[in-house]
Nucleic acid binder design. Structure first.
Length: 216
DNA sequence: ATCCCGAGGG
DNA sequence: CCCTCTGGAT
């Protein structure tokens, strides 16, 4: 293991190395308003961002406000998003969320995580993506990639996403949370994937817990 | 067959 | 904690 000291210094090293490896790491969903990002993020569950962008391009051309989405109704919305999978629940949640936005938020998307998470279909990952990418709020949500990567690297030890999120927020400076979120996701997809991680070409294997314990 | 940048419900 | 929802890519 390289001689790098504290957890914060290891975190710093990982941040620098991943940023160099993935200089274009960022939210890949296409959106023109917080509302569009909210809908796109709900739609992104269990499918890739490029397929979401394909669907939302035509969806938002027709309806890009809570009121206009509500006018589509369940069946029309389902039809439009069918190719993304999980379409029934996504459509139901989106319509319920739009209804709440109209009734309780003057049709605007709230800019805080707590309010967002009370909306149907909005969990911690969706809420994080919306606040960090639409409102500039520092946030680092733990999805499957972040969870796996953080544990392999030895950055996290807790078993629940909530606690791992706390651990990560402790070792990374607040002003980097949003980017580290995307860096860990990019790394988790391109290199540190679930099945067969490419440890040989991993830019942070020298500080990786799993790399040394499993000596891959 | 298996996995995907999830969320809600039992 | 485990299950289910779903189509598409690999």
């Amino acid at each position: 293991m390289a001689q790098i000291g504290s957890a914060e210094e290891v975190a710093q090293f990982i941040y620098d190395a991943l940023q160099e490896r993935f200089p274009d790491a960022q939210c890949e969903l296409v959106f023109n308003s917080p509302f569009e990002l909210l809908i796109a993020t709900i739609l992104s569950a269990q499918c890739t961002d490029d397929r979401v962008n394909l669907v939302t391009a035509s969806l938002f051309a027709e309806a890009n406000t809570p009121e206009s989405i509500l006018r589509l109704g369940q069946i029309a919305l389902e039809t439009k998003i069918r190719s993304l999978g999980l379409y029934h629940n996504k459509a139901k949640n989106i319509l319920a969320a739009c209804k709440e936005l109209v009734e309780n938020y003057y049709g605007q998307v709230p800019d805080d995580i707590e309010s967002l998470r009370r909306l149907p279909g909005v969990g911690r990952k969706t809420a994080n993506v919306v606040v960090s990418n639409a409102f500039g709020v520092p946030a680092i949500a733990v999805d499957t990639h972040v969870f796996r990567v953080a544990h392999r690297l030895g950055l996290a030890h807790e078993k629940t996403p909530e606690k791992v999120e706390q651990e990560l927020m402790q070792i990374f400076p607040r002003d980097r949370w949003s980017l580290i979120h995307h860096l860990l996701i990019f790394h988790g997809r391109r290199i540190c994937n679930a099945r067969k991680p490419a440890c040989v070409e991993c830019p942070v294997n020298q500080v990786c817990k799993m790399y040394f314990e499993d000596k891959r």
